[in-house]
Simulated scan of single mutants.
Amino acid sequence: MKHIREQPGWDAVTISEAYGLSKKLRDRAFMQLLEFFSLLMPEVDVLYNTLQKRSIDAPGINSALCRFKENVQKMRQKTDALAATAHDGTDEPGRRVSSTAPVMKEACDTVISQVEQRFSQSDHLIAAKLVDSSFFPQHVLSFPTPELDCAVKLWPALGNKEKLKSELTTLYRHSELHTGNTALSLLKSIHENNLEETFAETVILVKIIVTTPMTTSESERNFSTLKRIKTFTRNTMGQPRLNALAMLSIESQLIQQLQDFIPKVIDTFCQRKDRRAAFLFK
């Protein structure tokens, strides 16, 4: 930033931005929050990548969410120490507790509450607890009627509710069928023991859960507009032209709806100055 501000050849906009960034890098609160989010965002990336796996199921989602919330909660407990030790390189570490600690705690609370709100009301995750073997000991003591009602309401293919309840009650009591931790392993166990007809409704439920995506998060397939415009071969373009091309790329749908836009651009291009090629014909 100092090099940009002091060396000749840079335009006024770049120099102004470099001055603002260098001022931020000397701000104590900014550096503390920068260090805090550098610790928080990798936890978000881990959760995101876990939820993107094809083999993810309800137990895997619950486990990933629990780990994520525990890690964020631990980070929240360390915010006071982080605010006291993080500094911008000029202040003495541990000199005083910064006012950024409440901001860090609020950020952690917001992240945790948003995650809980996002996944707590997912009906398919609630219904998936019916075939989650980790809940079977609890289901033996108290049958999960709310989860059953949610599954029947969510998937009309489960027509016989009473038969499904009877099958699940029997399934929970036979621990020899609980050979794995996933719904797919439960389906294989039922198939290997030739119990498809005995647990007909349960097989339908397990097949639905196995083939239903457990999360709605999608892979990021967007490409940067700046990377599309400013390639290696066009790295020397000025700021005004770069801004204009970025606007054209972002608002391409609107531009396509304008009548005679391309001919007008060509005419303007040809009339700006004399060119070697004859673009205009009379």
Rank of each mutant, 00 (worst) to 15 (best):
M1T: 15
H3L: 15
I4D: 01
W10V: 04
W10Y: 10
A12W: 09
V13Q: 15
G20P: 01
L21N: 00
K24R: 06
L25T: 04
R26S: 02
D27H: 04
L33E: 08
L33Y: 01
L34I: 08
E35C: 10
E35D: 09
F36Q: 02
F36M: 12
L40A: 07
L40T: 13
M41R: 12
M41L: 06
E43Y: 03
V44E: 15
V44M: 12
T50P: 13
K53Y: 07
P59Y: 01
A64Q: 12
A64M: 04
L65A: 08
K69F: 02
N71C: 08
R76A: 10
Q77T: 04
D80A: 05
A81E: 11
A84R: 02
T85V: 05
A86C: 08
H87I: 11
G89A: 08
D91I: 06
R95T: 04
R96F: 12
S99Q: 12
V103I: 09
E106R: 07
E106P: 03
E106G: 14
C108E: 02
I112Y: 11
S113N: 11
E116L: 05
S120T: 03
S122V: 03
K129H: 07
K129V: 05
K129W: 10
D132H: 00
S133F: 02
F135S: 06
F136W: 03
H139F: 06
V140Y: 12
L141P: 14
L141A: 08
F143A: 08
F143D: 02
P144F: 00
T145N: 11
P146M: 05
D149H: 13
A151Q: 07
V152T: 08
K153L: 07
K153P: 06
N160Y: 13
K163H: 11
L164A: 00
S166A: 04
T179H: 04
L184Q: 10
L186A: 05
L186V: 10
K188D: 02
N194D: 06
E197H: 05
T198K: 08
T202L: 11
V203W: 09
K207H: 00
K207I: 00
I208H: 05
I208R: 01
I209M: 03
T211D: 13
T212K: 03
M214C: 12
T216Q: 13
S217M: 07
S217P: 12
R228P: 01
R228I: 14
T236C: 12
T236E: 11
M237C: 05
P240A: 03
L242P: 00
L242D: 00
M247C: 09
Q253R: 12
Q253Y: 07
I255C: 05
I255D: 10
Q256N: 08
D260P: 15
D260M: 12
F261C: 14
I262G: 02
V265Y: 11
C270L: 15
K273D: 09
K273H: 09
K273R: 13
A277K: 15
A278P: 14
L280A: 10
